[in-house]
Design a protein around this nucleic acid. Structure first.
Length: 204
DNA sequence: TGGGCGATGTTCT
DNA sequence: GAACATCGCCCAG
């Protein structure tokens, strides 16, 4: 798992994460969901990243831990999930912005009682659906808590890249195409209804 | 259907 | 005291 989340550039890791399965063990049961949308954050050089200029604080310290470390921080009332993608000391990560429920759907809807099409279409929403707060911040991916299952992956028919959401006034980093999504999948933030692939959800 | 905006917690200057 | 890697409501068209 840690080998999948390292050994190549973070933007490539972000694209490769699309279709991989997140697995969460809870006291209520297991939740599985495919990753549909992710953004790359490129550490010290990236003006949109928390680790810009290597500025380390109590909040973002997890970014300097090894690949496979979970980085969760709070944005207003929401929690956002990131995975560290490089060796210890290189603070790069991928932000998970969308997931498609696979199993444990009833549990997710109990955690976040909204219609399915609004359940996991954004970084804060998917954390509500998973029932996670920042307890896992700084811990490694683990079969006991949150993990990636690479064998249960699906293959995107087409991957689209675009500018990251919410990065403004950061020169070239504002427009850098570091956001990756499964084209046509309905569980992607800011997806327009007419762009949804009703039949296959954008998978092969 | 999509744009505007207010509520909101935490961190840092 | 400002700045947010957001969400959900409201309203125009």
């Amino acid at each position: 798992m840690a080998t999948f989340l390292s050994g190549r550039p973070t933007p490539q890791i972000a694209a490769d994460l699309l279709g991989k399965q997140l697995v969460l063990k809870t006291s209520q049961g297991e939740i599985r969901a495919w990753i549909t949308e992710a953004e790359a954050y490129l550490g010290a050089q990236d003006a949109g990243a928390h680790a810009f200029k290597n500025h380390q604080t109590a909040r973002n310290a997890a970014l300097w831990l090894p690949a496979g470390t979970i980085y969760i921080y709070q944005m207003r009332t929401q929690f956002l999930l990131n995975l560290v993608t490089q060796a210890a000391g290189t603070p790069e990560c991928v932000l998970i912005r969308g997931i498609e429920p696979a199993t444990g759907l009833a549990l997710m809807q109990r955690n976040r009682p909204v219609p399915l099409e609004n359940l996991t279409t954004g970084p804060g929403k998917l954390m509500q659906a998973l029932g996670l707060d920042k307890q896992l911040n700084g811990t490694p991916l683990s079969d006991e808590t949150l993990a990636l299952d690479l064998t249960a992956a699906r293959r995107p028919a087409k991957i689209m890249s675009s500018a990251r959401i919410g990065i403004v006034n950061k020169a070239t980093w504002t427009t850098a195409p570091l956001r990756y999504e499964v084209s046509g999948n309905p569980f992607v933030s800011k997806r327009r209804k007419r762009d949804i692939d009703i039949e296959h959800h954008g998978w092969c």
